[in-house]
Design a protein around this nucleic acid. Structure first.
Length: 333
DNA sequence: AGCACA
């Protein structure tokens, strides 16, 4: 178990209010969706495109152990729902949900207002219009540049460090998706607030972890071992979060398995890849990577002394030293 | 610098 201060790996709360849930906004009571919703054009009233207004709601009152998925599964039924996420960085989880229009956001806010989210924990939702729109990452496509690192809170120091691999080759394969954000359709569903339940948007992917590091820091990597399909990761910081670590590496190309080793002072881990090439890729591209829970140190990536699943002393094979077995003639390589 | 598991 990680320490108390563990935080899930949520990269982008480039979203909304930095503000706490505390000051309940005065909100117009009984605001309901317009009777005649044609979101596209508001001929008279607001000249501004609806996308400039805040169409995100803020959701407080969630139980501490709320999952992104739970919230999504609730919100996806609401008309105009586009994306949501939960910010766990503060004491009480704060949810944010983006809707296609401000009206629909208001409608959603009122729908959810005072809703009992969990009877057992007596969680009752309090919703407001957020101060700012939820920021949804654009590129669903595997495009490394989609992970721009602007707006990241963490900045260990100098990242653009020459000599350290650029984050260009990350996870081509990895679903470039972090937890939240629902579907991203180009066109909003034909909507009809509360009119009927058309097929709800299905958030395609289970929340997965973000493979992109927050930054890179130089590490000195003297004394490496010869390339093999297993990497040894050290210098992970005092309170590295195992889940985060696992999520980080498990989405790398060629990942097979990993083992995390908690030791007194240092936590280290071993990662097996499909082949040496994949290991080498990661060895180079993620050297010095910083992930949130690693604090302000860059991880050191080395080849493992012993590849996963192979014994140290190669005279004894994995194939059991059977009483009557043939002598271990086969060897690796 | 901290290298386990089979």
């Amino acid at each position: 178990m990680a320490g108390a201060g563990m935080h899930p790996f949520h990269q982008q709360w480039a979203l909304a209010p930095t503000a706490a849930p505390s000051p309940p906004l005065p909100r117009a009571p009984g605001v309901t969706p317009p009777p005649h919703p044609h979101q596209q054009s508001l001929p008279h009233a607001s000249p501004v495109s609806s996308h400039d207004e805040v169409r995100t709601i803020f959701i407080a009152g969630l139980p501490e152990d709320v999952k992104e998925r739970e919230l999504q599964n609730l919100l996806r039924w609401l008309p105009g729902y586009e994306a949501s996420q939960v910010n766990y960085k503060v004491e009480k989880p704060m949810g944010f949900a983006l809707f296609s229009t401000a009206q629909l956001a208001i409608a959603a806010r009122d729908t959810l207002q005072e809703m009992v989210f969990d009877a057992e924990t007596k969680s009752v939702l309090h919703t407001e219009i957020a101060k700012k729109n939820l920021f949804v990452k654009r590129g669903i496509v595997a495009d490394s540049s989609a992970y721009d690192q602007s707006k990241r809170m963490r900045t260990g120091g100098d990242y653009s460090h020459a000599g350290y691999a650029s984050p260009t080759r990350f996870h081509h394969s990895a679903p470039p998706v972090w937890g939240p954000h629902g579907y991203m359709t180009s066109h909003p569903p034909p909507y009809d607030p509360y009119g009927g339940y058309h097929v709800p948007p299905i958030p395609l992917h289970a929340p997965s972890h973000v493979p992109a590091p927050s930054s890179y820091l130089p590490v000195q990597n003297t004394k490496d071992n010869p390339p093999c399909n297993t990497l040894f990761i050290g210098n992970l910081g005092e309170n590295i979060n195992e889940e985060e670590l696992r999520g980080f590496f498990s989405s790398q190309l060629g990942f097979k398995q990993m083992k995390i080793l908690r030791q007194e002072r240092h936590t280290v881990c071993f990662i097996e890849f499909e082949d040496v090439d994949s290991a080498t890729n990661v060895h180079h591209s993620l050297q010095g990577a910083v992930i949130p829970s690693s604090g302000s140190v860059g991880m050191r990536i080395q080849y493992s002394r012993n590849p996963f699943g192979k014994r140290k002393d190669s005279n004894h094979l994995i194939a059991a030293p059977g009483a009557n077995g043939p002598p271990p003639t086969m060897s690796y390589q």
